Structure formats: C-alpha cells, structure tokens
Computed example of a mutant assay.
Amino acid sequence: MELKRLAPWACLLVLTACGQPPAAQDTPQTEDEPAVASIPVETQPVMQDSVSEYYHTTAVLEAPEAAEVVSRVTGIIGAIEVEEGDQVKAGQRLASIDARRYQLNLAKAQAELDVIEQELHRLNAIANKQLVSQETLAKLKYRREAALAERDLAQLQVHYSKITAPIDGIIAKRLVKNGNMATEYTPLFQVVQQHPLHGILHLPEQELSKVHPGQHAQLQLSGVDETIQAKILRIAPTVDPDTGTVKITLLVDNSAHRLKAGMFSRTRLRFDTHDNTLVLPRIAVIRQDLGHSVFVIHDGKASSRSVELGYSDGDRVEILSGLALGEQVVVRGHHQLRDDATVEVIESLQLAAKR
C-alpha cells in the first residue's frame, strides 16, 4: 500500500531531473589573458675609464703679496699718476708730494757741508807744518760727518716725496686725492699682486697623508664659466689645535687676470686616480640597507645585481666588483623594476615622454 502511494512522487522526481540543464563542467572556460606590459628603461654599457678620488672643500683666493703704500714725509699731494685697477711695476711713481721745502733743506745742508770740506782741506794742507793741532783737525772731521748725515737726510726726504710702488701688482685702492694733506704714515694706496694667486683651504688632519706639494686641484668660482686648475704649493708644518686642520696653499694661475683676490671658490682636491677601471653613471646605482645594486638587462629581462663601489668622480662611480665590461645596466627607469621584469630599452627622450 505504501509503495503505491510513493510511486507517483518518484516518477515526478525523475521527470524533473530529466528536464534540468547539464551540470557545469569542472574545467573553467578559457579566456584570452592580457599580455604583460614591458617597462621602458634606458641602459648604458659598463665602460672602462680613469676615476679619481677627490676631497671637496672651499677655498679663498688671496694675493701672495700685498702692500699698503704710506707717506714717509709730510706735505700736500701734488700729483696722482695712477688709478685703481692700473698695473704697476716696483719702483713706478704713483704720486708726488710738494717737495720744495725738502729741496731747500737739501740745498742748505749741501752748502754747510761744502764750507766744512773747504775748511778741512785747508787745514790738511798746513797740518804737516805743525800749525794746526790734531784736536782741532779731529773736531772738524766730526763736524764734516754730521754735515754729511744732514745732507743725506735732506736728500732722502726729497726722494720720499716721490711715492713709488714697493712691489709689482695692481692698484687695489686709492685712498687720497690730489691736493690732500699727507702726514707721515698716511695710507695712500693699496697694491696687490694678482698673478699668480694663492688659494687657501684647510684640510682635516686625518687626510694629511693623502696630499703632497704639486698635487692638482680644481676650482669653481661664481662668474667664471670654466674650471680653474691649481696645484698645492705648500703644506703648513703644524696642525691648528682649535680646528684640527692643516692650512694648504694652492698656486692658482691668473695669467688672464679674470680672478680677484678675495674670491670664494668650491674646490676639489684630487687625492688619487685609478686608471682603466670599470665605471658607471651614478644614477644607475640603487642604495640598499646592506650595500648597492644595479639592474642588468639580458634577453629583455631585468635582474638585480649587487655591486661594490670604489671612487666617486662627479656623476660617475667606480665598480670594483659585480659587473663585467660591456654589460648593459639600467640608468633610468630602474625604480619601477623587479627581478625578471620584462623591459623595453628606449632612448632617453622617449622615456621622458612616456613618463
């Protein structure tokens, strides 16, 4: 009886199952996968060149010789013969002081000397005749020496009335005007020597073993387009106890007279040079916690490579290990890379446009 009741429901279930759509397949439908985009990069081969180690500091240009010209006599400035910026030679006249009073003193001293010498000549002529005592003759000789000194002093004052340059150089300052009253030791001019110049820098004592006279340096100055070459002239024999530095004097060529004493320069002092070494642009190197790395391109793929750096020279660095000559290294676009990334090597202008 129970089987008769369940039979209609079993038939209904079978019919319902037969009308359903087929079950989903275990294997999903395949769709076209998007291609992996290539990352644009710019590369440069590892090259061989010379790289130097530099110490970067600052230096001030100084004149090796400078002199303040002062008046040695008192008087009115009668003529000024040079102006600021003029080149002068040692002994060249710069100005003159009214010397008429000194010339009169010279004439007077010369006249007194002439009288004494005439008297001395007369007494010497009769001394052999025992008509003049030796004491009188000795006193007259002393008077002649004093008169001679007075004449030389008057002559020196006339000479000092002509103001001359004590050294070769350039007139840095003119401190008086025509008609001014000058007294003894009144400053009149400043003369400085501008060729060559000295560059003064101070080097930490721990770097002292790396420098020696004749070593080369390069100077960059505001207003001067090109790099100025210099070399170490001398090294101070003592260390400043207050700063722990050593004074270094550079010899700076200024034959073109474009540099001026007092100029401030950025200076690179070359310590050492490695020739025929592997070099890369600095921008190719990625700083990491444990060192440095670069991305090397091979068969269109990027791979990270740890490198050991040596000397740094401007925008170039020395590679001591990790790379071989000629390997292509990413110099731009490496910050987007990872190991095994697909890359497209393009020119720098194209890379800039894509960015």
Rank of each mutant, 00 (worst) to 15 (best):
R5V: 05
R5H: 13
L6T: 11
W9D: 12
C11R: 13
V14I: 09
V14M: 10
T16F: 13
T16R: 08
P21D: 08
P22D: 13
D26M: 09
P28M: 14
P28C: 04
T30V: 10
T30Q: 12
D32N: 11
A35H: 05
A37M: 10
I39Y: 01
I39A: 02
V41P: 09
V41H: 02
V41A: 07
P45L: 15
Q48M: 14
S50D: 03
H56Q: 08
H56V: 11
T58G: 11
V60N: 14
E62M: 14
E68D: 12
G75F: 03
I76W: 07
I76F: 12
E84W: 13
S96Y: 00
R100V: 01
R100G: 00
R101A: 01
Y102Q: 01
Q103E: 00
N105R: 00
A111C: 02
D114M: 08
I116Q: 08
H121P: 03
N124T: 08
A125R: 11
K129L: 05
L131T: 15
V132Y: 05
S133D: 14
E135C: 04
A138L: 06
K139R: 07
K141G: 11
K141L: 13
K141Q: 09
R144D: 14
A147M: 07
A149V: 09
D152K: 08
D152Y: 02
L153S: 05
Q155P: 04
Q155D: 02
Q155L: 02
L156A: 01
H159M: 10
I167R: 11
I167T: 04
D168L: 11
G169C: 03
G169L: 01
I170V: 15
N180P: 01
M181A: 15
M181G: 14
A182S: 10
T183M: 14
T186G: 11
L188A: 03
L188Q: 03
F189R: 03
Q193D: 02
Q194T: 15
P196A: 08
L197D: 00
G199V: 10
G199M: 01
L203F: 13
E207P: 06
K210T: 11
V211P: 02
G223A: 04
E226Y: 06
A230E: 00
I232W: 03
A236W: 09
D240C: 08
D240A: 06
P241V: 06
I248R: 03
N254Y: 09
A256Q: 05
A261L: 12
A261G: 11
M263Q: 07
S265K: 15
L269W: 06
D275H: 12
N276H: 05
I283K: 15
G291D: 03
F295M: 02
I297N: 05
K301T: 04
R305A: 04
S306E: 05
V307D: 04
V307A: 05
E308K: 07
Y311E: 07
D313I: 03
G314P: 01
V317H: 04
V317C: 02
E318D: 08
I319Y: 13
L320V: 14
L323R: 03
A324D: 08
G326H: 13
Q328G: 03
Q328K: 15
V329W: 08
H334V: 04
H335K: 08
A341T: 12
T342F: 13
T342A: 11
V343G: 05
V343K: 02
E347I: 01
L351N: 06
